[in-house]
Design a protein around this nucleic acid. Structure first.
Lengths: 206, 206
DNA sequence: GTGAGATTGTGAAAATAATCACAAGGGGAA
DNA sequence: TTCCCCTTGTGATTATTTTCACAATCTCAC
């Protein structure tokens, strides 16, 4: 339905529209958004045109309406609960990251194999033994498993998550996971960004 | 010189080649890498062809040689030092992230405005007052500023970093920064990944 | 040295994405 | 209402990226 490149930009639109909404701005033009986002206005109009005709010629886009549409397509019209597997530094940082909650993504629990981490010592969220993944998934209604474990543990942990019934994995380990094809994996690799930066730096200044 | 889409894949190649190198694998075919990375072999060959002809027909690619080439183009042939600005959870998680050091990226110091965080209490790395950014940059030879501050602080902090002489910023705040055009900014937005995942989840299961 | 088998490197074709340019409306003032 | 200004929506064009298909050529076994 939507081109891939367009889908990749929806989160960006979501973010900026949420901001306008907070500021009680009712109408916004493609040109305004474009400046804020550093892309072209025609690209924005083209992207939004896949929804059909939802702007107002001569005026712009209704922020609340457009936001609702984008929320819908991003599946943010209902909130989703996450399980973070791996209560290391990254896992805890994500658990405490306010940006998630702001977007309707609620971390419900963490899991770890290390018994020293179990309990509620590490902050407001409970850390459960990894063996409880399946039972807590049911109890807490979690849909997305976040993998913040070492690379070597990623595949076995993914297997557990799949067995527990998770259909969506957000994987921070730099490993390609083998999963059944009805399971969606989103890869996140922090090193990619900085290596890209390093490339541009080297190219420009040596 | 290299197409953008190709550059975006270099970090991935870098990663997998490093792994082969560790395993003392001397030769690798495009097909092997393709399977590991989940892309097509012809795409790999096309990407690598921009270097000129560096494979061995009938055999594959020399891992060490190819890795050296990719390191060079990624600017990883020398190590680079980072300054993390914002010693919150994310900043500390990044500071302790071993993946950076493994790729020749060394966090030299953290900076924060909060005097409660100053010193060396938070781990092996010192946290300096933000006012010392410029002087420590010189002393420690840092090139890349990592912005792990709240969105509202990102622009002023970026201004400080630019004034201190940083030419490369790795920005985790969901804000487009205004900087002189000889300064490179790499944006990192953790929410994009999970929103994309949420989109696919909604599309598939509702 | 020779032949069989493997894998690269690369033009050409196809697919995807971005940009352009402007007609089609809508808003608002008088 | 009418006119002018503004911004959308979109075909057409251009640019970029991916895939295809196979000749070129290297390795290895004997």
């Amino acid at each position: 339905m939507f081109p891939k490149a367009t889908i990749a930009r929806f989160p960006m639109y979501f973010r900026v529209l949420t901001e306008y909404n907070h500021q009680n701005i009712a109408l916004v033009s493609s040109e305004e958004m474009a400046q804020k986002l550093g892309i072209t206005s025609s690209q924005i109009r083209k992207d939004l045109s896949y929804f059909g005709s939802l702007g107002i010629r001569g005026a712009g886009y209704d922020v609340a309406y457009l936001l609702a549409k984008i929320k819908e397509v991003l599946g943010m019209d209902k909130s989703r609960r996450l399980a973070i597997i791996g209560a290391g530094k990254l896992g805890l940082a994500l658990a405490g990251y306010s940006g998630l909650k702001q977007h309707g993504l609620e971390v419900a629990a963490l899991f770890d194999t290390d018994d020293a981490k179990w309990g509620t010592n590490n902050g407001p969220l409970p850390v459960f033994p990894l063996t409880e993944l399946a039972s807590q998934k049911e109890k807490l209604g979690m849909e997305i498993a976040v993998l913040t474990v070492p690379a070597s543990a990623a595949q076995p942990v993914a297997n557990l998550a799949v067995k527990a019934g998770f259909k969506a994995l957000w994987n921070f380990a730099p490993v390609r996971l083998v999963v059944p094809k009805d399971v969606i994996v989103q890869y996140e690799d922090l090193v990619v960004g900085i290596l890209t930066l390093s490339h541009h730096l080297a190219r420009k200044f040596g």
